[in-house]
Design a protein around this nucleic acid. Structure first.
Lengths: 188, 188, 188, 188
DNA sequence: TATGAATGAGTATTCATTCAT
DNA sequence: CATGAATGAATACTCATTCAT
């Protein structure tokens, strides 16, 4: 990813996260990047291609970092806990990127259907760790799929919490609590 | 809400949920409603006003139904369980409406900032039930705000699960599992 | 002219004078008249027909009043002076009507070309009085047509003066001066 | 003013003078200019901005030319006569521009109120020359404001004369007569 | 006579995309 | 590599007109 392309990558995330895909304009992305509109088209064929590039590169960055962190752990429960934590961390660091994903997850346009497939694979990866932890007896027998979605859902709740309570939040506090609720629930 | 306005209400939810706010067109909403475009503007001043109307009316319908169901329960834990269940039910029934909310929750446009305020109030209501259950010793001492967001996050995970695995899902199964994970967590 | 039609007549003058012909809306005229839009179409076939009705009726009212006043005078110079004065008076009283005429005098649409014909006839009438005064030796030999337009031009200058200096004008003062300048010029 | 902007300037004057401000369409202006509609919006933010640009630039062109000509004269009466003449000439040359002004002078929309301010300043400039000529004893003692409006009114009468009698007019003839009537009146 | 909901052609404006430089 | 002027299809919105009541 060369310098200009990286500038576009970051600017596009900013603009897509602020206005959504349809609400974002090539003019807006160019302005945010401090580039002429024509330059966007020198590096990308279309708005859709910029979007796809963002999703692909953004997910790769996050997946790599998650993988690295999880690999540092040895047993399957530690891996799972590390996964939950680093995932929350990554998406918090890449808040704008996560907002792009969340806003584009819901429609029926091809871009959105493809995005859901990407997210599905991401969740399937979580599920893998859950299965190993289940086999090792660390977590309850049950539908790992639901559990995986619960973990992914915790990303959503964290993101929405952060979005609504923009000021004065302690992100580590949130991480601790969310992890606790996922693992042990809220009931006494 | 008169007949025509109701038709527009329902059609707009359908179209907004399929294309998002910016991606939705007044032509599209009119076609879905089987009305002329001018008729939309006879009943609403703008696209934005249709959106606001949908959010307000849609949330009211859901809040009323949740209230009724919760009121049928006597103790605070039962109320909380009923809340989680009916909430999942309502948003599942009103899937398209929920998609509109979820897709519009993330940006910085005034419409979206206002929507977050609406959602915030909705979550504050959940928090109220959690506080009573906590005082009655049914749930762990802790930050009720985080718990409330966790419960709201379960709506997201359910919705995403349903969206990605469109075919062959058993919604009651999901409800049972999600409720269980919220209350008791996934760990043994 | 029955009551409703008169209400529409007056409201339309008000609205046309404020927004011009194209800028005026049937909604606006109806609102000004305190009537439903459909009622306008009960009395008139179209917006254009309202406009034509206004011009015709409005000009007739003014022409009648001018005629009456001029007829009271005996010699041709007195008639001419009376004409100038009553004309200024009438158009001042019917300011909004005059604004409609002035704003619609300039384009190439059929409505405007027809309006110019109406104004032309009005000016031709002035010219008639000028010719008689010229034959009686009261005014200079020369092109009565130009003189007639000069007199009509004084209506414009008065109207523009009144429009720009809305507050604190003494209309009789203006009348005296304008009449003097038409007859004797500004030079010593 | 670059080439494209000048093309738009001239085309817009043509179209506004033919249909008025509200009656003019961006499509029409674009067609007249031989440009795509988008090009208009590349150079101007809105129809209103094109209008404002026309008024400002058009008045500047005319004011400059008037100034140059008046400056060539030495005494205040010659300056006044030159003013009347060059003014008639300029507005005759820029007939379409003058029609735009005249048609937009009458309403209560902000564009029109601002236009009246522009015209007011133009007339104030005429008044300045009248005051000097009055102080030098060339013209009657009296309200220079009324006189200035009378001179401006002569532009209107000339324009209307030219508009109604489109064929076979001798513009120099008109100029001579109008100037004579302004200075010496029509009376013997 | 009067109404006002419904219509759809028309209009201002937007914006992804192209292309000559 | 980068630009920005130009494009035109698409879109939000307007408004004269119709019509059932």
């Amino acid at each position: 990813m060369n310098k200009t392309k990286k500038t576009i990558f970051e600017s596009a995330i900013k603009v897509f996260s602020t206005y959504g895909y349809s609400g974002a304009t090539m003019d807006g992305i160019a302005a945010q990047a401090g580039l002429a509109k024509g330059t966007l088209y020198y590096h990308f064929d279309s708005k859709e291609e910029i979007f796809n590039y963002i999703i692909e590169e953004g997910m790769n960055l996050i997946k790599e970092r998650i993988q690295e962190t999880v690999d540092e752990q040895s047993d399957s429960l530690s891996k799972l806990k590390a996964l939950i934590k680093v995932q929350l961390n990554m998406f918090y660091e890449q808040r704008d990127f996560f907002k792009v994903i969340m806003s584009q997850l819901w429609g029926q346009e091809s871009r959105q259907i493809e995005l859901r497939e990407v997210v599905n694979e991401f969740i399937k990866n979580i599920e893998g760790y859950l299965e190993r932890a289940m086999n090792d007896g660390f977590i309850k027998k049950g539908e790992t799929a639901f559990m995986a979605y619960t973990i992914f859902g915790s990303l959503c709740s964290t993101a929405i919490y952060e979005l609504i309570n923009e000021d004065g939040i302690n992100i580590n506090d949130i991480f601790e609590n969310i992890t606790e609720y996922i693992l042990s629930g809220i009931q006494v």
